[in-house]
Nucleic acid binder design. Sequence first.
DNA 1: CTAGATTTCTT
DNA 2: AGAAATCTA
Length: 671
Amino acid sequence: MSGGVSIVWFRRDLRVEDNPALAAGVRAGQVIAVYIWAPEEEGHYYPGRVSRWWLKQSLALLDSSLKNLGTSLVTKRSTDSVASLLEVVKSTGATQVLFNHLYDPLSLVRDHRMKEVLTNNGIAVRSFNADLLYEPWEILDDKGRPFNTFTEFWDRCLSMPYDPESPQLPPKKIISGDVSKCPSETIIFEEESEKGSNALLARAWTPGWSNADKALAAFMNGPLLEYSKNRRKADSATTSFLSPHLHFGELSVRKVFHLLRIRQVLWANESNTAGEESVNLFLKSIGLREYSRYMSFNHPYSHERPLLGHLKFFPWRIDEGYFKAWRQGRTGYPLVDAGMRELWATGWLHDRIRVVVSSFFVKVLQLPWRWGMKYFWDTLLDADLESDALGWQYITGTLPDGREFDRIDNPQFEGYTFDPNGEYVHRWLPELSRLPTEWIHHPWDAPEYVLQAAGIELGSNYPLPIVKLDAAKSRLQEALAQMWQYEASSRAILENGLEEGLGDSTEATSLIALPQDMDEMDMDENAIRATTHTTTTIRHYEDQMVPSITTSLLRGGEEEEESSSDVGNQAEDSRAEVPINQGMDDTRMGRTDDMQQVNDITAALRNMDDLQAESSNTSGSMRERDGGVVPVWSPSTSSFNETFAGEDSTYLQRHPQSHQLVNWRRLSQTG
DNA sequence: CTAGATTTCTT
DNA sequence: AGAAATCTA
């Protein structure tokens, strides 16, 4: 036993405490800790600037912790993490590879392949749960099927016959394997152009597992008690700020859960109801994180496809201008705009405001949710594929327990509940800083003299509402009517057995692609315009699907047309595009049946082989339909950055202490 | 005290 | 929008 060398493959479990893979390695003998940076494998989901910044800090801290324990972190730069892992194994003479589970679709496929490759090479592979209270396959209903609503899921989690594993302490000492033949490679996490902006982040955040632990303690001993009371204020400092730590696995959810439970019992004994309620609420947000993994595991396409198909024919607006206005915080709705500017400036957004801006995005602007999700991915410090997919699908209403699609939230009213005194808006929208609270969430209603006194000229230094709310409501109705009509004709085509129906169906079924990726964003603006201008105003009668990003990974980008293969094809279709044989007058009708079907299929797909077969299949069927219109955006080239920085002096001078996150102006002065 | 109004919450 | 919780006369 003591002679064995184990590779511990770190991914999003960047901690030494309660890390089962690491613990197993230590128990087995010598350990070689490895981190492989292969972002190209993530396809569209190459981590954004702030996310990479966090990762860099976190790895540095992990390395120093490992050094204190007797080894160090071997880092590798790769475009094929499985191949790199195999190299590491060979150069170190390791006999086993240990890692902790991930549940995003890319990792599921990659890890499956990794297991296969290594096993074929005679290497033992062992994997563990380090990210969840319970593995997704442990939480099933009475018939042994996965749940489809959060409440049911979470109830079951909380009433499981056995508790989640107790958190383990860090190892006292690690016996290092010989890494002399396996040198670390330097990983570049930030481009030169990003360093300036990144420097600001360090003033507000301290990544790394030991800091995560401190953040947890600070939250538990402070804001947690008031969590239920304060959680709905846009700029309150009462959120936990743990999400980036949790995303990178710097913090063990099981530890969080454990400590929360202890605290809960304590407060229950003191009959501290406010405290109890707070704990329950906070636990629920942990539960949502669990649920996002659960959904991703059971429905590996939930990051790119709606779970329910009832909006399949919704005419999403392919409108670059709307998209840009939203990103830059120039929609004319102060609460939305403040949120978007905070996001851009700090990489952070209060949970409530995430709901506000994303709901606005989908319902008022009618933009395809995957664009919004991609933007969140690129800009959020806690960008998390599973959580964000769940969130956006929830907002869009494509989950069984999602919001109703035809309900539009009113940012003006939301403004007065989440930001009653307008402080949040004042902070992030310097151009409105002199507008009284009475008008702060609806400047378009303010009398001319008020606007003048506040130095606001609507339509010039602050926009008028990009879409009026009553217009948004009727537009939504129109869009739904179109959707039903399109649905009906599509069904007619199917029933008539026509291969190609309406003349415009090619256009109609073309895909709405994601916004441009990083490498394309630096393109000449004219070139971009040339590729997009003809179609920017056209509505697309199709879901926002893209070819599966797992394709390139599996087949090196070229997959055969294998539609004949197996269940996969059918399964894929039913999941992505729930049959539209009902629900003409109720967008929600038929969802139970649909979900039933989805479930049956995914149950059959639990096996990784099927999953793999299916993903290649998907791309096969989607590929030739690619070519949707792609709006272009670029944080790095946006002029908004410069316009925004340094404008909000007055308010910040008045409230120097008032928020804990990045103070954009102050930081840019000193940094 | 209750019926009715009003506010809050919804994963 | 609709249910549930909270307020009020």
